[in-house]
């Protein structure tokens, strides 16, 4: 990627005069006219739906009213951004986002690594392939389906509470879906259930490049399976782990709109409202366009800085960098 963005144009002749250079460029562009024709739809898409909205960010600096339009709405400077930090509500929302995100990094991030190592230890190729097919599958389910399954299993009259009552003699039903203390653990467990299997792909790919002779030599030396994992398997995926962790840290403000939104209710709103859901409630439901845009811009800018920082960091680790 890097070289494409930064490389210099080949075949540039410094001696050419301006006029003839312009002529040559025009001639070359005319020669490539069909390629520009192919470029056009995509380019229009990026301009209309990715870059015009960036101009729309100006409403974060205005008191936007749909009746006056973007241009005529009065400027308010940085007022909307000041409001972000003056409002205890938004500060709470930022905290909620960070807590969920860090819990995911601590508990959900290692899951695919462990699962990949376990799968890697399966000697029977058929068994391994079948289990891979099974654990990849949840990745392709929608969040509505996953949350729906959780609802069916964990509601008061669901299977889990039934079994707890009948098999373990529990006296009371547990409000897994209504009691706030279960909200965060469920978010994490759902992410693990849905994405851990899919996440193994990149680690298994790194492991497929390991020379089997290393394991044979370790067996000769009398190394146990755990020692083989520690000294051969883990070092083989170390750089992949570091890269994935860095990418994940760059996305720390992303906690997934659909998953959280589907499970928000009056009981868990105070710990469950994250930046994305907050922007939705404020902007779409309450039509506070300017302020919610400011919150979105804040999130976008912090994300941009984090991703660029993460990329630098990964280069410092001697890795390729993500972009």
């Amino acid at each position: 990627m890097e070289t494409l963005v930064q490389g210099t144009e080949p075949g540039k002749k410094p001696t050419a005069t301006k006029a003839s250079r312009g002529k040559r460029i025009r001639a070359r562009m005319w020669k490539d006219r069909y390629l520009y024709l192919l470029l056009l739809p995509g380019l229009l898409y990026f301009i209309v739906y990715r870059y015009v909205p960036m101009l729309g960010i100006t409403i974060a600096f205005k008191d936007y009213s749909p009746f006056m339009g973007i241009v005529d709405s009065p400027w308010t400077g940085l007022d909307n951004f000041r409001r972000i930090f003056e409002s205890s509500e938004v500060v709470q929302v930022i905290w909620n986002t960070l807590i969920i995100s860090f819990l995911q990094i601590i508990f959900a991030f290692p899951a695919p690594i462990i699962l990949a190592i376990m799968l890697n230890e399966v000697a029977n190729p058929l068994l391994k392939r079948v289990m891979q097919s099974v654990v990849y599958m949840p990745h392709f389910l929608s969040w509505v389906v996953v949350v729906g399954i959780v609802t069916i299993f964990f509601r008061n009259e669901g299977l889990v509470n039934d079994l707890l009552r009948e098999a373990f003699g529990a006296q009371q039903t547990i409000g897994f879906l209504t009691e706030p203390q279960y909200f965060r653990p469920f978010l994490i467990l759902e992410v693990i259930w849905k994405e851990a299997g899919w996440g193994t792909i990149i680690f298994l790919a790194a492991l497929s490049g390991v020379n089997p002779a290393l394991y044979e030599a370790a067996v000769m030396d009398g190394a146990s399976r755990f020692r083989q994992i520690w000294h051969i398997t883990l070092p083989a995926i170390r750089s992949t782990i570091i890269i994935m962790l860095i990418i994940r840290l760059g996305d720390v403000l992303e906690v997934g709109f659909e998953q959280v939104f589907l499970q928000l209710n009056a009981f868990n709103m105070h710990i469950g409202n994250t930046l994305d859901t907050y922007v939705y409630f404020k902007g779409i439901q309450q039509s506070d366009y300017s302020f919610s845009t400011a919150v979105g811009v804040f999130k976008g800018l912090v994300g941009l800085i984090l991703v660029m920082g993460a990329n630098k960091l990964s280069k410092r680790f001697g890795e390729q960098g993500v972009y």
Partner: peptide
């Protein structure tokens, strides 16, 4: 790396 966000996209 950077998107305008939910509201400006909605307005477009």
């Amino acid at each position: 790396l950077f998107s305008a966000g939910m509201i400006p996209t909605y307005l477009v």
